[in-house]
């Protein structure tokens, strides 16, 4: 292969990846439209758009369907972006925002708010559950980071502290559930299933803001993270401060994932599947991989949101259940298909 054909070959690769990213973006837009067009009331999008004068339809469109559909896209993108960065920095393709016990901490925070009627001063009561979930999630990951830093911040150390955090948070959650009333336990269980029905424009704005702040910071480190895929030794030899990079990324990822799960509850599958789907279609050059993961996460979450409203007519299933039941077989099929091809 001559230098010219090599350059042309690589340009074709780049072009192919940009086309794939464009296709993913288009698919997200279509999935979003489908999500908005679907609802338990059975009212079609065309009717909603034509009946702007009807306050009831306007409420359905502007206060229910649009915020939920937007939240699905944002949460999917945030969780998948967080998962992609974690998988790279922890050098572990099974890593996701759950690895550090973040979701378990968020659940504990939500449970405390529900069972003990805790609220943060200055915040409306309605916000107490997501606010405490967020604080607990952030606190847990900061604790993991501090402990990991004290031990040298190796990938294995971070994962070990994360696993320890998962068990501690679960034990505390069981303790809270043990002393809770039956009603409160039911609320906690529903929260852990993950649901988009709690969405509102304020919450959408907050998640969107965190995502908008995180994505550019992630993209600034694409070369360092791509280098890290060659192994820590090699990354260090190129002047990458691996431990520092890992801690910076983990803090950013924690913010992203905490913002997402505190508003919609536990949605575990997206942080794992988004990165894997992106890896399948655009590889691991992080210039394409990170946006690809965010788009793949947004797409899967958006489709899951639509499915959650369509599987049982007139009923909205918790989206966390749908992502697992529908998404995992699809994901396995994709992975096995790729293995057969290679």
């Amino acid at each position: 292969m001559t230098a010219q054909t090599l350059a042309a070959g690589y340009r074709r690769f780049i072009l192919g990846r940009m086309v794939i990213l464009g296709g993913l973006g288009l698919a997200v837009v279509l999935a979003f439209a489908l999500d908005v067009a679907t609802g338990p009331s059975g009212i079609r999008l065309a009717e909603l758009l034509k009946s702007a004068d009807d306050p009831a339809l306007a409420v359905i469109l502007w206060d229910i369907r649009l915020p939920q559909a937007t939240m699905a896209v944002l949460v999917g993108a945030a969780l998948a972006l967080a998962g992609a960065e974690m998988q790279t920095t922890l050098n572990n393709s099974l890593a996701s925002p759950f690895t550090l016990g973040l979701t378990n901490a968020a659940t504990l925070g939500a449970a405390c708010a529900i069972v003990f009627d805790l609220a943060l001063p200055g915040l409306p009561v309605l916000w107490s559950v997501p606010a405490l979930a967020f604080c607990f999630a952030l606190g847990a990951t900061l604790l993991v980071n501090v402990l990991a830093r004290s031990q040298g911040a190796g990938a294995d150390t971070v994962v070990l502290f994360g696993i320890a955090m998962v068990f501690v948070m679960n034990a505390l959650l069981w303790l809270v559930q043990y002393v809770a009333s039956a009603d409160a336990v039911q609320q906690i269980v529903f929260w852990t299933m993950g649901s988009l029905t709690r969405s509102s424009w304020e919450k959408v704005a907050l998640v969107g803001l965190v995502l908008a702040l995180s994505l550019p910071l992630s993209l600034r480190q694409v070369w360092a993270m791509t280098t890290l895929r060659g192994g820590e030794d090699h990354a260090r030899s190129f002047g990458i401060g691996v431990e520092r990079l890992r801690l910076v990324v983990l803090v950013r990822v924690s913010l992203l994932a905490a913002a997402a799960v505190s508003f919609v509850g536990t949605i575990g599958f997206i942080g794992l599947v988004g990165p894997h789907l992106a890896r399948l279609v655009v590889g691991e050059d992080h210039r394409f991989y990170l946006p690809g993961a965010a788009l793949a996460g947004a797409l899967v979450m958006s489709l899951a949101s639509t499915a959650s409203k369509s599987l049982v007519p007139g009923l909205v299933l918790p989206v966390g259940i749908v992502t697992a039941l529908v998404g995992i077989p699809l994901f396995m099929a994709l992975l096995l298909g790729q293995r057969r091809r290679s």
């Binding site: 070369w223 360092a224 895929r229 060659g230 192994g231 030794d233 090699h234 990354a235 590889g283 691991e284």
Partner: peptide, 23 residues
């Protein structure tokens, strides 16, 4: 380093590009 670059989904071209861009 003595260790080999990790087997990853990166293209060989991208591995070298990333090393050059990082430095």
């Amino acid at each position: 380093p003595q260790t080999l670059p990790q087997a990853s989904p990166l293209l060989a071209y991208e591995s070298v590009l990333a090393a050059l861009r990082a430095t």
